[in-house]
Structure formats: structure tokens, C-alpha cells
Write a protein that binds this DNA or RNA. Structure first.
Lengths: 136, 136
DNA sequence: CTGATTGCAAACATTTTGCATGCTG
DNA sequence: CAGCATGCAAAATGTTTGCAATCAG
């Protein structure tokens, strides 16, 4: 009902596929790619075409409901737009964890003054080994 | 001759295309995508197939001579591997500028302790408006 | 001369577009 | 019932692979 409301607020129609995808993304705390979303939908017996998922993502990103993120493997992932955060990407197993702490102090003012560049946003990802892979 | 030496060090053969691409990437201070590299080669009348450029990039990245970078537009760019730095990406004109200052203090130790994640590297990109676009 | 490098064709993966059908409001 | 949303087919884009011809060492 949370999402039903959000969809209506954005003048979008409430469909089973849309509800399912939004709930899916919300449950997972890591960005999902199109294939992963499709697999989950299929597992839940919710019929939905690949193209529809692409179109949903486009719509949701436009409306600011979902954020498109981009790691190093040539495809996009999507996550619910929320509080700004960063990611820990395991180079071994590919698992992705969100970290919600600042953990960094980006001096946007300094960049602005030094390079005359007006920053609107930034991306920061950490690559390395997750706990399980480090212990192998 | 700098590059000739580097290629030999890495047991790679010195070919016109390889020399041209390395000099090209060195001259530009921003990462280039495959099409841009091809265009420059073509402009310099150096015959080279697209596939060859992809393969060169793969080889150079493996050898640590070149770094693959990934912004938000679904394709890879390549730059000479050097001192760690970050990028300013203009959302208006797409221009990319490298910034070589730290400008950020990432607490890798804190992340390691808090999330049990062993960081090997990170990516940081700033998106916004470059000087020219901000003045339009 | 030997094997690394290249070119061409074709395959692949991801994402986008066109159009007719169907469902939401 | 009007128009948004979906499915299917097909195209566009970026990247990879197979194989034979070529060039560097």
C-alpha cells in the first residue's frame, strides 16, 4: 500500500508487475540487474516481459523512485532511491552491500573553487573482498 | 620510445597501432571510449580495426598499463594507468576532466572494521556542470 | 620461421524501438 | 472507453569469439 500510494502520486497506474518489482527492490538491500529482477518475478509466478522491466526502470528513474547504478561489468543495476549511500562490491563473488555511513568527507566546495565545476552528485564505490571471500 | 620500452618490458610486440593508441591516450588527459580512439586513429590515417582496439585495451588493462573506467552511459572508457585520481563528468556536454588532488578522505580502516570488508580500490566520480556549461 | 597480432565475419549481451493488444482508472 | 501499460518482434549498441592471414622479433 506504500507503493500503491507512491505510484498514484506519480500518476502511474498500479499494475501487478510494478507492485512486485518495487517490493522486490525494497526487500533486497542491494541493487539488482534486469536479469535478477526477471528471475525473481518468474520465481514468484508473476508474468512479465524483459522489455517491460526495462520500461518500468526507465519510468521509475524518471520519477525519482529508483536509482540506476553502474559498476564495472557493463550493465546497469537498480535500487530504491533513498538516503545517499555507497557500495561495497566484492571482486571475488560479486556480492554487493550498501553502506549507509558517510565514511568519507568529500570536499565539494574545494572542488568547486579549484576547478570551477559545479557538483550535483557523486558516485563512490569500494571494490575488494567481502568477509566470506576474505576467509577462503 | 617511452612506450616502445614499456611494451617490450611486458613482452608485447611493438606495432604501429599499439604505439599510436598509447600515445593517443597519453596526450588526452581524459578517458577515451573505443569509438573515440578509432576516430583519432582514422584521422591519423593509421589503419586499425575496432576489434583490434578492443583487444589492445584488454591486453593493456591486464598488463596494468591502462585503466578501464566506467561512467553512467553503458560503455567503457580507457586511460593510461597512473597516479590514482578522480573525474569530473559534465552532465550537460559530457566533457570529462581528471582531478589529481585527493579531495577526499576515505576511512578505509573504518570500513574494514565496521563491515569486515577488505578494500582494494575505490572509484569516485563527480557529476555536475563544467565551467562552460554553467555559464550558459 | 614461429607465434603474437590483426582483420573480417559472426556471435553475444544489453538495451531500445515499433506496433498491436489489453488492462487500469 | 481513453490512454497508459504490456508483449512480441526486431533493431540498435557495445563487446566478444573463431579463424585464417599477416607481421614482428
Amino acid at each position: 500500500m506504500e507503493w500503491k500510494h507512491t505510484l498514484k502520486e506519480n500518476r502511474l497506474r498500479v499494475t501487478p508487475a510494478r507492485m512486485a518489482v518495487l517490493e522486490l527492490l525494497e526487500k533486497k538491500d542491494a541493487p539488482m540487474d534486469i536479469q535478477a529482477i526477471l528471475a525473481e518475478l518468474s520465481a514468484s509466478s508473476i508474468p512479465c516481459d524483459q522489455v517491460t522491466v526495462y520500461r518500468m526502470m526507465e519510468t521509475f528513474v524518471e520519477k525519482g523512485m529508483v536509482k540506476q547504478v553502474n559498476f564495472e561489468d557493463g550493465k546497469f543495476r537498480y535500487e530504491i532511491e533513498g538516503e545517499h549511500h555507497h557500495h561495497l562490491v566484492c571482486e571475488q563473488c560479486g556480492s554487493i552491500q550498501a553502506i549507509h555511513d558517510p565514511c568519507l568527507a568529500v570536499s565539494e566546495t574545494e572542488v568547486k573553487q579549484k576547478y570551477n565545476f559545479q557538483i550535483t552528485r557523486h558516485h563512490l564505490e569500494f571494490f575488494g573482498l567481502c568477509q566470506s571471500c576474505a576467509n577462503l
